[in-house]
Amino acid sequence: MGRRKKGRKLSGWLVLDKPYDFGSTEAVSRLRWFAGAQKAGHAGTLDPLATGILPIAFGEATKTVPYVQDGRKAYRFTARWGIATTTDDTEGDITRRSDVRPDRAGIEAVLPEFTGTVSQRPPAFSAIKVDGERAYDLARDGEKVVLEARDIEVDRLTLLEAGEDEAVFEAVTGKGTYVRALVRDIAERLGTCGHVTALRRTAVGPFTEDDAVTMEEATGHPASIKLAPEDRDEARIDSVLIGTGEGLREHPQAPITPQDAFRMRHGQDAVLPPVQAKAVRGEQSGDIEPVLATLDGEPVAICRLEGLRLQPIKVFQLEA
Rank of each mutant, 00 (worst) to 15 (best):
K226T: 12
G176L: 03
T257M: 09
Q253F: 08
K226E: 03
A235R: 00
T214C: 09
K226S: 13
S239M: 02
H251G: 06
V168I: 07
T257R: 12
E234A: 04
L241I: 03
Q253L: 07
A212N: 10
E209D: 14
A171W: 00
E230P: 06
V204M: 15
T173F: 01
V172H: 05
R180L: 02
P229M: 05
Q259V: 13
A203L: 04
D238P: 00
V183K: 07
G243N: 10
G220K: 02
T192S: 13
L227C: 07
F262T: 13
G174I: 05
G245Q: 08
A228S: 15
F262R: 15
M215N: 02
A223L: 10
P258K: 14
G205D: 10
E246S: 08
P258T: 12
I225D: 14
E230M: 06
A187D: 03
E166W: 03
F207N: 09
L241N: 02
D210V: 12
G176K: 00
P255G: 09
P222F: 12
P229T: 02
A261G: 14
V240I: 06
T173M: 03
G247S: 11
V172Q: 05
I186W: 08
Q259M: 13
P222V: 09
P229R: 04
A167I: 03
L227G: 05
G174K: 06
E217G: 04
T197V: 15
F262G: 14
E170P: 04
L241E: 02
A198L: 13
T173Y: 03
I186T: 04
Y178F: 09
G243F: 01
L182V: 13
I256D: 01
H195D: 07
